[in-house]
Simulated assay, not measured.
Amino acid sequence: MDKPLKTPPPYPVASVDHALRAATILQMEGGATVSQIAERLGVARSTAHRLLAMLVYRDFAVQDEDRVYRAGPVLELAVHSQSLVSRLRAAALPHLRRVVDLVDETTNLIVRTGDTARFIASVECRQALRVGSREGMVFAAHRTTAGLLLLADLSDAELDEVYAPERYRDRPGDRPDLARLRTELARLRRNGFAVNKERSERGLVAVGVPVRDRDGTALAGLSVSMPGVRYDPHRLQPLVATLEASARALEADLAEGR
């Protein structure tokens, strides 16, 4: 069996969540100042400073002479991944905000690493009942909208490598049924978009499209997430059209090096 769906803890601790998100930002993007962390987390500068000081104390972060905080020895991520994620996120944020303005639902950018999908950017909508930011969170790729789209970009051999049985010796229940997954991925390739109804989290529906580089390879997935009670199948095509237009605009920005 697959892992159970992710659900928020019944008693979330905001300070812990802020510290974990700050560590994720440093790990994925290579570095940030106190002001940048404060803005990203939506907290006071003094709060951000205390969070970063604790991360430094526990070796999750280090501070350079230029007062920029970077990932410490506890956190490891390839330099290439840092630069790619940072570039993708910076280019995508204006487009994510534009999608939120148009559809008033939380919008995300997701990349795939192996059999997992990581949310690298998330812009919340303004509605009282909304899906919160997923930035920094990691899910099984086959359980997320964007993860499925990115898996659909793989060849059969590449998909076999991602889900090779030996990778799951210690967690056989996490390996999806490949025959069923291949059938689903073939359908996604034909459609060009994906709809996720409560596969990653209860009560959540997401719609997504791929973001591609110049040679057509899928780099990331662009998605909107909403409470299931607000999802209307009649809105699907307009949602997909909005996402595709934003994905094409983001691809153009990436091609021009913006």
Rank of each mutant, 00 (worst) to 15 (best):
G132K: 14
R89E: 11
A128C: 00
T107S: 14
L150G: 13
D101F: 05
A140R: 14
T144W: 04
R134I: 05
R167M: 07
S86P: 00
Q63N: 06
G136K: 07
I110T: 15
L148S: 13
A152C: 08
V62Y: 00
Y168E: 10
D153R: 08
V62A: 14
V131E: 10
A61L: 03
R112L: 01
V68I: 15
A141Q: 09
R167N: 09
T107Q: 04
P94D: 11
A117R: 05
R169E: 14
D160K: 06
S122I: 12
A92S: 11
P165F: 09
L84C: 01
E166M: 03
D59A: 13
Q63M: 15
R70C: 10
G147P: 05
A157L: 11
A92C: 12
V103M: 06
G136V: 02
A61R: 05
S122A: 08
S155Y: 03
S133N: 13
H80Y: 00
H142Y: 15
G136W: 10
V99C: 03
M137E: 13
P94R: 04
A117P: 07
L102S: 09
L159P: 03
D156T: 12
V62N: 06
G132N: 10
A92W: 15
L84D: 03
V85D: 00
A140G: 05
L148G: 13
R126V: 00
V123G: 04
V131N: 02
V99I: 13
A157R: 14
T106S: 14
A121W: 08
D59P: 07
P94M: 08
C125V: 01
N108E: 05
D101K: 05
G147S: 10
V79I: 10
R171I: 12
D115K: 08
A146C: 15
D115M: 02
T145H: 12
L77V: 04
D156M: 01
S155N: 07
I120T: 01
G132W: 13
I120W: 07
V162L: 07
R169W: 01
L102N: 01
S133W: 10
Y163Q: 08
E105K: 11
E76T: 08
H95N: 09
S122F: 12
T107D: 03
R112K: 12
A90C: 06
L148Y: 11
R70K: 12
V162Y: 10
T145I: 09
L129H: 01
E105I: 02
G114N: 01
A90R: 13
R87P: 00
A92G: 02
I110K: 03
R134L: 15
V99P: 05
Y69Q: 02
V68E: 09
A152P: 02
E76H: 11
G114M: 04
A92P: 04
G114H: 00
E76Q: 02
T107G: 08
L88I: 04
V111Y: 04
L151M: 14
Q82V: 11
Y57A: 15
A146W: 10
A90W: 12
R98T: 11
G72F: 06
V123I: 12
D64F: 03
H80E: 05
Q127G: 00
